[in-house]
Amino acid sequence: MSFLKISNLRKSYGALEILKDINLEIEQGGFLVLVGPSGCGKSTLLNTIAGLEPITSGDIAIDGRSVSGLHPSKRDIAMVFQSYALYPNMTVAGNIAFGMEIRGVAKEERDKAIKQVADMLQIGHLLERKPGQLSGGQRQRVAMGRALVRDPKLFLFDEPLSNLDAKLRVDMRTEIKRLHQRMKTTIVYVTHDQIEAMTLATKIAVLKDGVLQQFGSPAEIYNNPANTFVADFMGSPAMNLLKGKVETNGSGLAVSLARHQAEPLVLSVPNAPGSLSAYSGKDVIFGIRPEALTDPDGADRNARTVAEGDCLIEVVEPAGADTFAVTHLGGKEIVARLRADVRITAGQTARLAFNLDKAVFFDPASQLRIA
């Protein structure tokens, strides 16, 4: 049974519809990440779960009980905000204990809870400091500690790491992941950072313009995107999406990709799904991730179908563990992810390997996945 269930949820401000028929559910102990570009509705959705925004229609149930009409204080949730929302005149200990104090929790019990979360978050040495004396990462830990002492049914995180620098974001991401593994609590987490979504989530919901584009595990979202928006949004570098044409190749199918000042590159797709056959002779959008487009020696040895072709390399970008190469195919600039020690220079023609097990095809009109 799902622990958090969102059914046919709609949210409007007058004639402006922000959330459009959202259906989601997550099991107890799951980590649901709401991801999408700015203005897609993810924070509004989080606020409706919290009760900070009323819903226009639909339902939200937590642990089998509808909470749609309940005040936020009655929902048994705790929220961690992007802005930390700490009281500047209180110590760290005072900030963590404030909610318990308001609820009339005995001092002995408060002190015990403060010590427990301070040890867990490694902020015991900061308990007597004021928020103004803390770094951004320390403030975020205090904000998390204040939520943790509540021991709620559901934790809500609203872009909690967006104010931190890049290295601290990675460190705090690991801390949140470790915390979830230890406590096995149910979390709903909002971010615009797809790397954060991929590393933290057990389930990801991708939103665009208030519409749920795809809901699934990180692997499903990454490997089997439902449409070109999800394919392009999830992944860094993004999936290469280029114009191609499906052709019959003997008893099988092939995809033809235009090359600059050269004959088209034709890649056989021997294990093509039946749904692609209907596009024979028609244009498609061919999608392949940079790591599935590499130098032949770096190709996946377990792949069933690897096709090779010569491409003019325009830009080479060494990136430590990898080398990225930029070329043109299908009328678009695309990125290949090569081994770090590969010998390749800009301006030369190089042979690239396409792992077609990882290729996906989209309809150019609907932008939906064909196969």
Rank of each mutant, 00 (worst) to 15 (best):
G287T: 10
H71Y: 11
Q214S: 05
G210S: 02
E53M: 03
E159R: 06
I313V: 13
T323K: 10
V190P: 00
F362K: 08
A325W: 09
R169E: 00
R75Q: 01
A106N: 14
E291I: 14
R141N: 02
S275Y: 14
N302K: 11
N8G: 09
Q82H: 06
I285R: 08
R173M: 03
Q133L: 09
E220V: 03
A346V: 04
E175H: 08
G274C: 12
V246L: 07
L86P: 03
I176T: 03
A325N: 10
G39T: 01
G41C: 01
K184N: 11
D193T: 04
T56E: 01
V316M: 11
S12Y: 07
S251A: 12
L4S: 06
R139Y: 04
K245M: 10
D283V: 15
F361L: 03
P273W: 15
L356R: 05
D300S: 15
G281L: 13
K245Y: 02
V306S: 15
F157E: 02
S43R: 00
P318M: 09
M183V: 15
A219S: 15
Q28L: 01
N47V: 00
D310W: 14
I77V: 12
Y87P: 14
L257K: 11
K112T: 14
G210L: 03
P296Q: 13
H328P: 08
P131L: 07
E291S: 12
G51F: 03
I344P: 08
I344K: 13
S68D: 03
A231S: 14
L267P: 04
I102F: 07
G51M: 02
I187A: 07
G250H: 11
P37M: 00
I18Y: 01
A113R: 12
L161A: 05
S135D: 04
D357T: 00
N355D: 14
A231M: 07
D165S: 08
G145T: 02
F155Y: 14
A143E: 05
C40I: 03
L352E: 06
L338F: 11
E247M: 11
N240D: 04
A258T: 13
H328E: 14
V33Y: 01
S256D: 05
P273H: 15
R182H: 11
E27R: 13
K11A: 03
P290T: 10
I22Y: 01
V269D: 11
E220A: 09
S275A: 15
L293H: 06
G320K: 07
Y222R: 05
P131I: 04
H180N: 03
A197N: 02
V284W: 12
L70A: 12
E128S: 14
A238P: 10
E101N: 11
S83Y: 13
I123F: 08
Y279E: 06
P160A: 04
A299Y: 10
A61V: 04
T191G: 00
I123W: 05
F3W: 07
K20V: 01
A336N: 06
S256H: 07
D283K: 10
I195C: 03
D295P: 10
T248F: 13
P318T: 15
Y279A: 09
S280N: 13
N355G: 05
E314I: 13
K20G: 01
S2R: 04
I187D: 01
M144Q: 06
M79A: 02
L86H: 05
M183I: 15
D300I: 11
A278V: 12
P290C: 09
